Computed example of a mutant assay.
Amino acid sequence: MAADSGNGISAILDLSTHVFVNSDLTINLLRKPVGEWVCLDARTHLSSHGGGLAESALYDELGLIGRATKS
């Protein structure tokens, strides 16, 4: 669930004036998470041609577990 939240957390456009549909979600995991908590470090990158990429690094208490991207 955390991997699917990156675009909302890192939104840099005003959601009252911009809408978007994520057509994909790619998750690459290094290993299974340890413990109950997952940290999400999310960023959004925009192009001048109307595209964007939401990129998230996923961590647990031991460190990086993977990355998620949405276009």
Rank of each mutant, 00 (worst) to 15 (best):
A57T: 10
L15F: 00
G6K: 03
S47F: 03
K32C: 01
L30C: 02
K32R: 11
L30P: 03
I9S: 02
Y59C: 01
L15T: 07
L46A: 04
M1A: 09
T26L: 14
M1L: 09
R31D: 07
W37S: 08
E36F: 07
D24G: 12
E55S: 10
L29R: 13
G6F: 00
W37Y: 06
Y59T: 01
L25A: 08
G8C: 11
A68S: 15
D41G: 00
R43P: 00
N22E: 13
Y59M: 04
W37R: 12
A68G: 03
H18E: 04
K32F: 00
L25G: 04
V34C: 05
F20S: 07
I65L: 09
L40H: 07
L53P: 00
E36T: 15
L30R: 10
Y59E: 03
T17P: 08
S47I: 13
L53M: 13
L53K: 04
G51L: 11
D60K: 14
K32N: 09
D4T: 07
D14I: 01
V19F: 04
D4L: 11
H49Y: 08
S47Y: 04
D4W: 11
V21H: 10
G66Y: 08
L30D: 15
E55M: 13
I9R: 04
T17W: 05
E36P: 13
T26A: 14
D60C: 02
E55P: 08
E61I: 04
P33Y: 01
A54Q: 05
L53F: 00
L58D: 03
L58A: 02
L53R: 15
H45W: 12
H18L: 05
S47K: 03
G6P: 04
L62I: 13
G8M: 09
D24S: 14
G51H: 09
I9P: 00
I27G: 03
I12S: 08
N22L: 09
W37E: 10
N7R: 08
G63W: 06
S23M: 03
L29G: 14
G50L: 09
T17L: 12
L29A: 13
S47W: 03
G35I: 09
M1V: 11
H49V: 01
G63M: 08
V21K: 05
G50V: 12
H49I: 01
G51R: 13
G6L: 07
G6V: 07
G63D: 06
R67P: 01
C39I: 13
H18C: 07
H45D: 07
D24E: 13
L13D: 01
D24T: 06
R43G: 01
V38Q: 11
D41F: 05
L53T: 10
R31N: 03
L25S: 05
D4P: 01
A2N: 09
T44K: 10
G6H: 03
L13Y: 01
G51K: 13
L13G: 02
A42V: 06
D60T: 08
G63N: 09
A3H: 10
D41P: 11
N28G: 07
G66Q: 12
N22P: 10
V19H: 12
S16H: 12
L29S: 14
D41W: 02
D41T: 00
S47N: 10
E36Q: 15
S10V: 00
G35L: 10
A68E: 06
S48D: 15
L25H: 07
R67Y: 07
I27V: 15
H49N: 12
